[in-house]
Amino acid sequence: MIEREQVLHVARLSRLKLDEDEASRLETELSSILDHVDRLAEIDIEGIEPTSHVVPLENVLRDDVTRPSLDREVALDQAPDPVDGAFRVPSPQAEG
């Protein structure tokens, strides 16, 4: 089970605006999905290592040499509000 308060908390962590309908739907849906997922608790995982990745690779490195990357203009080309060679964003302070 997941409560409305948790839904809103997770939405804040996720930086997602949810309207009333969405929040109430997610409350039901997430609860039902988590009920199913909770069956994992039946499995004995004592002493089992976690798998985050199936390929046995570590620290793939290349030589530390500079090489061309995207031009600044190209990198900015798709931005919603590029200005003076930078990405412009609204003020972090709420107005008023």
């Binding site: 839904v7 996720s14 605006k17 949810l18 964003v89 609204p90 709420a94 107005e95």
Partner: peptide, 28 residues
């Protein structure tokens, strides 16, 4: 508006329901 609202509005307005569901599930 302010930066925080811009993030939340952008993601809230432009992600579809399944994507929101999975972001919520994963964040949880």
């Amino acid at each position: 508006k302010d930066l925080g609202s811009m993030y939340e509005d952008t993601r809230g307005d432009y992600f579809g329901p399944e994507v929101k569901r999975r972001i919520m599930l994963g964040t949880y």
